[in-house]
Every structure is written in structure tokens, then in C-alpha cells.
């Protein structure tokens, strides 16, 4: 049987090659132009971070005349800069772990059982993913001040649960529904208890789904700023908010701003690299 599958796969690939062979390559042109459009602003940011402020403001150069790493040095040596990264990464990490741990049992419930009010509950959860953070900015400020979490990573991590937990439930439910229920039943017949089955059998099966979910929780927590900035002042200030400091009395420090911007891209690129093979399926939230 495996030989047949291999032949079929080989047939399929060479068939698709034949197909793309006679198509006019308008596709490649579209794709190239699109990727160019995506990369140009990033390229501009990167080379700007390598220029001196004098060069940036004095005229247009497509390539730095004199490459300088002074901007990066400033960031890595000044605690008020690099602690911004640590703050951001810590609340993102807390939020990702929290979201997945909470969402796993709930997603299992939604994918395996019907229960009183399940559809309405699912919708209500989803609607929170869609609620504008702007609405919550002020009440969160009051809430987290009242319980003494204000200006800690925990405040931001919990606040981000508002949209990340529903999203995690949604994605995981999609992946879990793709796993046949017979697997659960077989495990129970083999004498597995629910927690043991869940940890030993079910989690490894949906490992890809958990990875994709972690990616999305990371992504949405990492990119959000409105709540993160509202709930922090000094101690837990995220890097993205620190960037506003470059607007100072002495005018804009463009080079430093660009360098800080470039550094915020790095965690994202790393994460994408790890999930690159699941990215397409992941973006369909397990629902293809």
C-alpha cells in the first residue's frame, strides 16, 4: 500500500509540474511584486537603523554611507530600553501558557460533547475575540488598579486572555474535531483514565494544533499595544511603548527608533521559522 501511495504522490507532483509548465507565469510576477511590496518598508527600517541621524536627515541614500551600530549599542546598554523587551516577552509568555492551559479542556468539551447552552457559549466566547480593546482600556485600568496588579506583567497577560483564550479555544476545537472520536473510546476501553488519556494520547495527537495555537497567542499578545500600554507605567512597560520615548525635546532620534523597531521584528521572525511547516494549516485555524 505504501508503494502505491508513493507512486500516487510522485504522479501528483509531476502532474502539477506539467500543469504549471504551460501556464503563463503571471503568477510569479504577482508574487514577486507582492513580496517586494512587503519587504521594501522593512528594508527601509533596517537600513535606517544602521545609519547615523546626520545621514538620515541630510538626504536620501538607498544604502548607508557609513554603517553604524551605535543605535543598537544604545539599546543593549540602556536598561530602560532592554528591560522593555524583557517585560514584553514575559507577559507574552505568561499569556501563551495561560491561554493554552485554560483552552485545552474547554476545546475538548466543545469538540466532543453537546451540553446546555454550548452554541451560545461558544458564540459569546468568540464575540470577545472580536470586541474592540479600546472599550476595555478604561475598565481594565480601574480593575487592575483595584486588585493591585497594575504595572505588572500579570495585568497585561490576564488582559490579553480576553481575546487570546477565545481564539485558543476556537483553534484547538478545530484541530480536535479532526481527530476521530474512536481514539478516545479505544483509550477508555484500554483502561485509560481521562487525565491520563488526555496527557498521554490526545495531546501528542494534536501537538501541531497546540503549536499553532501557541503561535497565534504569541502573535496577538506580542503585537497588541493599546491594553499593554494602558496597564503599565514604568516597571512592566513593553518595548513597543518604550519606543515613543524617541520623541524628545531634541527632535526625533530616527536611527534609534528604527533600531528598536528592527529588534521588535526578531522574535516574530524566529517564531515564524519554527512553525513554517504548519503555518498554512494554522492560519485556517485547523478548519480546512
Amino acid at each position: 500500500m505504501s508503494a502505491e501511495t508513493a507512486t500516487a504522490a510522485a504522479t501528483a507532483s509531476s502532474v502539477s509540474r506539467a500543469r504549471s509548465g504551460f501556464r503563463i507565469d503571471g503568477g510569479a510576477i504577482t508574487l514577486t511584486l507582492y513580496l517586494l511590496f512587503l519587504m521594501l518598508p522593512i528594508y527601509w527600517l533596517v537600513i535606517m537603523s544602521l545609519k547615523t541621524n546626520a545621514e538620515i536627515t541630510s538626504g536620501m541614500t538607498l544604502w548607508p554611507q557609513q554603517i553604524t551600530f551605535a543605535n543598537y549599542r544604545t539599546i543593549f546598554t540602556d536598561a530602560s530600553w532592554y528591560s522593555g523587551y524583557i517585560n514584553s516577552l514575559s507577559y507574552v509568555a505568561i499569556n501563551t501558557v495561560l491561554s493554552i492551559c485554560l483552552a485545552l479542556p474547554a476545546a475538548y468539551a466543545f469538540s466532543r460533547y453537546r451540553f446546555l447552552g454550548d452554541k451560545h457559549l461558544f458564540f459569546w466566547l468568540l464575540s470577545n475575540r472580536m470586541a474592540p480593546p479600546a472599550i476595555f482600556a478604561l475598565p481594565f485600568f480601574n480593575l487592575y488598579s483595584a486588585i493591585g496588579l497594575f504595572d505588572t506583567p500579570w495585568a497585561v497577560a490576564l488582559a490579553h486572555c480576553l481575546f487570546n483564550v477565545p481564539l485558543a479555544v476556537w483553534i484547538l476545537e478545530g484541530f480536535m474535531s479532526g481527530v476521530p472520536r474512536e481514539i478516545d473510546e479505544t483509550a477508555y476501553l484500554d483502561g485509560y483514565s481521562f487525565p491520563r488519556f488526555f496527557a498521554k494520547i490526545f495531546m501528542p495527537i494534536i501537538a501541531n494544533g497546540i503549536g499553532v495555537t501557541a503561535f497565534f497567542c504569541f502573535m496577538f499578545s506580542w503585537v497588541e499595544l493599546l491594553l499593554a500600554r494602558t496597564l503599565t507605567t514604568v516597571n512592566a512597560k513593553p518595548i513597543a511603548a518604550t519606543m515613543t520615548r524617541t520623541v524628545s525635546a531634541a527632535g526625533m532620534d530616527w536611527g534609534l527608533l528604527a533600531a528598536a523597531g528592527v529588534l521588535t521584528l526578531v522574535p516574530g521572525v524566529l517564531v515564524i521559522w519554527f512553525v513554517r511547516n504548519y503555518i498554512a494549516k494554522g492560519f485556517a485555524l485547523g478548519r480546512v
Binding site: 512587503l38 503585537v223 519606543m243
Partner: peptide, 21 residues
């Protein structure tokens, strides 16, 4: 895939900064 996903992982205010510049 990696190139395409990059803008999605940029913090939103940095997206603003990139385009502002």
C-alpha cells in the same frame, strides 16, 4: 511563507512607525 507572515508579527505600533517613516 516566512516572508509573507512577517508583517503579521510586527507589533502594531511598529507597523505604524514603519509606515510613518
Amino acid at each position: 511563507l516566512v516572508l509573507m507572515a512577517m508583517p503579521l508579527l510586527v507589533p502594531w505600533n511598529v507597523v505604524g512607525t514603519i509606515w510613518q517613516v
